[in-house]
Structures are given as C-alpha cells and as structure tokens.
Design a protein around this nucleic acid. Structure first.
Length: 757
DNA sequence: TTACCTCGAGATCA
DNA sequence: CTCGAGGTAA
C-alpha cells in the first residue's frame, strides 16, 4: 500500500519533469515508449487508488487517451488578486529616453544632460549611474494570469478589464509546456501562492500546421495566430483547445505569498525557469540606455527567426524595490515601458467617405477603402476623426514638413494601425490622384435628418477649413442621434441591458409598431410582448431574455444611469463623482452651482465669483463633486433643463432606480471623504502587509480622508511600512515622515472602528 | 477595427 | 446546418 503511494508520487514527479524536458526544453529525458509505459503504469495505480486522485497528475492531460477535463457551461468572472495593469507604449528612441529620465529622477539619480553628450548621455559609460534594466521581446499573444497554490495549478484567468477576467483554467491546462504541478529542486521551497503572468500564444509552426490541416479538411482558415489563440481561450470544450497546441511564456508576477521568492525581475525569471515553468528566454540586461537601444535593434532583426510574432520590446527596471519606489500611476506602472516596432504601412484606394452621426450629434467622417491585408487583418474602414484632418492630410507620414493636401475620393492613401489595433489613414499620395477626382466635402446638413450643423474649431477666434475640430447635428430628435443614444444607454459599461444591442434597437425601431425613442420607452417594452414576438427571428426565448435584461437594468443606480444618459462631459469618472456627492437624482438636479465645485468657487475673489457665477457672497458648501470650472457649469445647465427633468421623471415612473449606490455623505464625519480622521494627509504604503492587500488598504485609508500616493516625497505625511520595506522606508526617514508598522496601523484602524476582521 | 466563439432561431434533412 | 447577434480579445 505504502509503496503504491510512493510509486504514484514518484511517477507523477518524474513524468511531470519529463513533460517539461520534452515540451519546454525540447530535450527528452526518456524515449517516448518509456514515457508511455510509465504513464500507463501511473494510470493503473491511480485507478487502483481513487483516494489518491489528483487534478494535477500528468494522467489528467495526455491527449488522445487521457482526459482533458469536462467542457464548461459558461465562463465565470474572477477578480484578480493583484490587478493586471497595462504597459505604456513608446514609439521612438526619444520617448524611451523620456521614460528613462523619469525613472532616473524618480530614483534620485543625477540626470544632468546639460553637457549635450547626445541622446543617451544620462546613463552611458561616462556617467554609468542608473538602475539595471531588462529588455525582452514582447510576444504577440493574450495576457493570462496563472495561479499555483501549494505547487498546483489551480486557476488561470484572462486579463479582462485588468480587475477581473474570465476563468479559463480548463483551456490553460491543455498547454503541454505548462506544468500542472511544480517540483522544486533540493533545498528550494515553492511559495504557497505563486501567481505568474505571461502570454499565451500559438507558435507560428503550429499556426501553419493548423491551417494546413484545415485546408486539407476544406475548413475556413485562421487569419492570424493571435486570433486563433484568442479563439482557443474562448472554447468551452478543452478538447478543441488542445488541438491548437498553444504555448505559454511567463514574464511577470501577480500575488506571491513569499516576499523573498525573488527580489528582481531577472531573479524571478530564473526561479520560474528552475521550477519548470516556460519563460521568455531572451532577456538583455544592462544599465545603459544605449545598450537597451542596441538590444532593441538586435531583437528587431532577430524577431523573424522566432516561432512567434513579436510586436515590440518591453523594457523594465530589474530591481523590485526600485520598482516599488517608482510606483504606479492609475493606469500603468512607471517602471516599465513597451517599445513598439514601427507600424506596418500599406497603400490602398479610398472608395468613399461615410458621415456617421454619433450619440452627441457629432458627425464623424469614416473612410471606406479597398480591402487590404495589414498586420494580420483585412482592413477596409478607418475613422478620419474630423474634417479638419480631411482638409489637411499629410503627404508624407514620416515628414510633416512635406506638407498636406485635401483628401479626394479615389485617392491612394497610406494606412497604418495605431497601437497595432485601430487602423487610421496616415497620409495621401496626391500624385496618384485620378483625373477629375472630387475633394471630400464636409456635410452642410445632417446626413440623416437634414437638420442644420454647428461647427467647432481648434481656435474659435481663427476659424478655417483646416482647423475644424468637430461638426455637430444639433437636432435633438435626429433619428441617428436617438438610435446611438439608445444603443449607448443599453451598452455593457452603462445600463448593461442584455439582449438590447445595436441590431435589436434598429429592428424594433424599423418595425414602427412599438415606440422606442426615449430611455423610458425601453422600460415600457414589456407592455408590447405580443408585438415583439411578431418581429422576425424573435422567439419566446429571445423576447423573454430581453425583457428580463431590461428588468435587471432598473437597479443599476445613479452613477451608471448618469453615465448611460450620454450627458456632455459626463463619462464614467464624472458620473461616479456626482453619485458620490448626491444621494439621488432629485438632489442632484436641484443643487446650486457651488455644490458642484465649492472649493473652486470659494477660492475665487469676491469680485471674480460675482462676475463668473453671479454669486454675491462666499457660501458654505455642502457637497464637493470634484468637478472643475469647465465641466461643472455645463453639467449643471443640463441637469436644470426641462428636458432633464422630463427624462428623470419618466425613468422614475417606469421604475428605474434613481438612487445613488455610491453616496458618501460629506456631512457625516464617519463616512466623509472630505473630513475623515486622515483628511489632508498623504499616505504611502510600502512592503508586504499580512492583513491587507494594498488596494484594499488604500480604499480604507481613502475612506478615512487620506490621499494615498505611490512614492515618498517631502509632502508625504505618513508611511505605512510592512515587512521587507525597501527604499521608500529610507526615503521616509530622510524626509522625516511619520512611520507606522502594521501593528500600529491595526491599532489605529481598530480605534476608528473600520478594522476588517 | 477585425476575428473568433457561443447562442438562439429557423430551415433542411433523415 | 447556417445565419446573425452579442461578447471579447488585441
């Protein structure tokens, strides 16, 4: 009995290592026949001892005769323990240098470039100070976070919006080069929680193989490796995914229970490799930016020999302590940057320009072109942004000095992709213009309702054809505007009405049997169930799903609703700010201006206040929205309008929740943002805390009124230092900043009654 | 902006 | 089985 147990454990580790050697390192440990024999032996032993079953056993993933696990019924959304941030992009050496200088400055290195030693003088041999940098090719695939607990792969999640993504564990388990269980070498410990981040991709050789197979079978071919890999991740049945033979390469970390696992990126990669994980192997390590540039050039020439597409190079500060000193902006870490290779550029012919009317009435020119293959996709549409650009298209995208020309229908144009995704028209070749071609004319009337248009210019004092920045249809009843508003309202990030997409909105409106012109009309659709069923391709199931989706959306709350209404200047951020300051729509609509921007209003001199806002005396405000002097008056003007009143009233009557779910009453000190016990304090968190995730703690501190910042400066009032605090602690001592350890923090939070037990 | 996957609906075939 | 809608990735 005992020996069967030992034999099982031994075989699992041996076969797992053999898998790594075979699939990751292409250096088999044993003959295939031997592997098969041992695998069969393991399978038989496991069958004999069902009590020793383990999801991470190599038998749970063996292709033809093995089990890949069951198909799932749908994707589950999972929150990331540590958010997956995006990386800032740079497109030329100057941008990279700017990044490097910010890094040097942030770390307290001298950056005096007055010598004029050239582009990279700040950190070359003559001035060899600077942190160690790592440059590595960026694999063109999909970002995935993979979590191991006690050495076993437990969960894999897509990036999603960075905060939460889809659980794709069943598909990730089919990746042969990725161990289901980690095995440490002697003397090493595997952290209890080890979350790695990396790229899932389809190797080019596999892409070719797949398409050859598909062609032979008469099936539709995949367009490019990235989409084939992305598609594989969306499979419900992992057997399908397994056929694609995906690969993975780790290039970062998420949650890590052992703060001493690695203290730098290069050390992390080495340790992951030692644990049998596939990692990005092409690291260049240097302290000089010149050498980073030459590494980038090397990668650029060598990238065509790699078995995966590469769209740039990632450059990062190696040392983790230095990374945390640099910290993170709201959208991306300051210690890393992507250097993108120059975008592919092609020429094609402009067939025509469509004018699209958006939800705000903005009329946007959209180029329709002869289809052309660009960076893995067929491109035939591109936005032209505004008519100012149409009137002055660059003749040479590389050199704006070559001048501009007005775009004509039939012109040959250059197209590129911005950030590798959104195509845009980069320039025009006037010499190839056909005889008699007509210039692209901006519409003088709305293309849909034929109403009048209003034009905005970059500089209103000096209007000209070339400086036009926007053109608007100002008819609020314009069918195009109404349509776009409804589609926006129902959208995923707004009211999230399942079943009410673009096509459904069009279908209902086109039928003309049911009114659908206002937001409130949506909430009356259930009164027309019978009429909806009569619509083409609308069965019971679809209609009931739609009505259920509408019902669900009533409860979204004020913040979502404001964002959904498409009020000018009110996006996701502003609507949240408003919902925090006002408890419901009624309070919001009746609030005086100084409630929107009290700090700004009260900061003005008496004369200025009177002149700008017609207020006689300084007022004691009750609410602080955080809106500025530009947006606040404009937003308030809308909220006071009869049309706003009507909209809110109709929604309310239809049963839509106009209450704020995010309300923080500033008059109640215990919940106040503006008057908490930490009001006016800037707090920095460093090191590892036992009790809290960093983001969780930030939220608590912010609720107590603190401003939480990423790096220590003279303005910092308090440093919360966990275990293994790095240079931030030194900095704090230098600036004489108050320092608390975790015990002191816990004591304080307990006293405030906000301790989360 | 395009490509890919899943689902429901309706048509087609056994 | 095929179509179109809806969702999501880059």
């Amino acid at each position: 009995m005992k020996s069967d147990h030992d034999r099982i454990l031994h075989l699992r580790e041996l076969l797992s290592r053999a898998n790594v050697a075979y699939y990751r390192d292409a250096k088999p440990l044993m003959a295939d026949a031997e592997f098969d024999r041992l695998l069969r032996e393991l399978g038989e032993l496991e069958a004999k001892h069902p009590e020793l079953a383990d999801e991470s056993s190599p038998t749970k993933r063996v292709g033809a005769e093995g089990e890949f696990g069951q198909a799932i019924s749908g994707f589950v959304t999972v929150k990331h323990a540590v958010p997956m941030l995006s990386i800032d992009n740079s497109y030329d050496p100057a941008m990279l240098k700017q990044w490097h200088e910010r890094v040097l400055k942030g770390l307290g290195f001298e950056t005096d470039d007055a010598s004029g030693e050239g582009l990279f003088a700040a950190a070359n041999e003559k001035n060899p100070v600077g942190p160690t940098l790592i440059a590595e090719p960026k694999i063109d695939g999909l970002a995935i976070s993979i979590r191991y607990e006690h050495g076993k792969l437990v969960r894999a999640v897509t990036r999603g919006d960075g905060t939460k993504g889809d659980d794709v564990t069943h598909n990730i388990r089919t990746i042969r080069s990725l161990p289901l269980a980690l095995h440490a070498s002697k003397g090493e410990r595997i952290p209890d929680v080890l979350e790695i981040r990396g790229e899932v991709y389809l190797p080019l050789t596999e892409f070719k193989r797949l398409n050859d197979e598909r062609e032979a079978a008469g099936e539709e071919l995949f367009m490019n490796p990235r989409n084939a890999a992305a598609g594989a991740m969306k499979q419900l049945d992992p057997k399908e995914t397994a056929k694609r033979r995906l690969a993975f390469a780790a290039h970062g970390r998420g949650e890590l229970s052992d703060a001493n696992f690695a203290n730098s990126h290069s050390a992390l990669i080495d340790r992951l490799r030692a644990l049998g994980l596939p990692v990005n192997d092409h690291l260049a390590r240097t302290t000089s930016l010149d050498e980073v540039m030459s590494a980038i050039e090397r990668f650029d020439t060598a990238r065509h020999d790699l078995d995966h597409a590469t769209d740039g190079v990632v450059v990062r500060v190696d040392d983790f302590a230095l990374q945390s000193t640099l910290g993170t902006t709201s959208k991306s870490p300051r210690w890393v940057i992507a250097y993108k290779f120059p975008a592919e550029r092609k020429t094609t012919v402009l067939i025509r320009v469509d004018n699209q009317v958006g939800k705000s009435g903005k009329i946007t020119p959209r180029a329709v072109m002869e289809p052309v293959l660009l960076a893995g996709t067929t491109v035939q549409h591109a936005t032209l942004h505004n008519f100012g650009r149409v009137a002055q298209m660059p003749i040479d995208p590389e050199d704006p000095g070559k001048g501009h020309d007005h775009l004509h229908v039939g012109d040959t144009v250059y197209i590129e992709k911005a950030g590798e995704i959104i195509p845009y028209v980069a320039g025009v070749i006037p010499s190839k213009r056909p005889k008699g071609a007509k210039p692209v004319k901006p519409p003088t009337h709305c293309p849909v309702c034929n109403g009048p248009v209003e034009i905005e210019y970059v500089d209103p004092e000096n209007p000209s054809e070339q400086t036009e920045s926007g053109r608007f249809c100002v008819n609020p009843e314009c069918p195009a505007q109404v349509r776009e508003k409804l589609i926006w309202f129902a959208g995923r990030k707004q009211m999230d009405i399942e079943g009410l997409g673009e096509k459904t909105v069009d279908q209902i409106r086109a039928a003309g049997t049911i009114p659908l012109n206002t937001f409130a009309d949506i909430y009356h659709l259930h009164e027309h169930r019978g009429t909806l069923l009569a619509l083409d391709r609308m069965g019971e199931k679809k209609v009931d799903n739609l009505l259920e989706g509408i019902e669900q959306s009533k409860k979204r709350g004020l913040a979502k609703l404001l964002g959904a209404m498409g009020i000018r200047h009110v996006g996701e951020t502003t609507s949240k700010l408003l919902a925090r300051a006002f408890k419901d729509a009624t309070e919001l609509c009746s609030a005086p201006l100084h409630d929107f921007m009290p700090a700004a209003v009260n900061a003005l001199s008496d004369a200025k206040r009177k002149e700008r806002f017609d207020l006689d005396a300084p007022l004691n405000y009750t609410y602080e929205t955080g809106l500025g002097a530009g947006t606040a008056p404009s937003v308030r003007e809308y909220l006071r309008s009869p049309s706003a009143k009507k909209t809110f009233a109709a929604l309310s009557a239809a049963g839509v929740d106009l209450t704020s779910h995010d309300f923080t009453d500033p008059r109640n000190p215990s919940r106040a943002q503006s008057t908490g016990p930490l009001t006016g304090k800037t707090v920095v968190i460093t090191g590892t805390l036992e009790r809290y995730e960093r983001s969780q703690l930030s939220e608590i501190l912010e609720r107590l009124g603190a401003k939480v910042s990423g790096s220590v400066s003279a303005k910092t009032s308090l440093l919360i230092a966990g275990e293994k605090a790095g240079s931030k602690l030194d900095n704090a001592r230098k600036f004489n900043v108050e320092i608390w350890d975790e015990a002191k923090l816990v004591g304080f939070l307990r006293q405030q009654g906000v301790l989360v037990e």
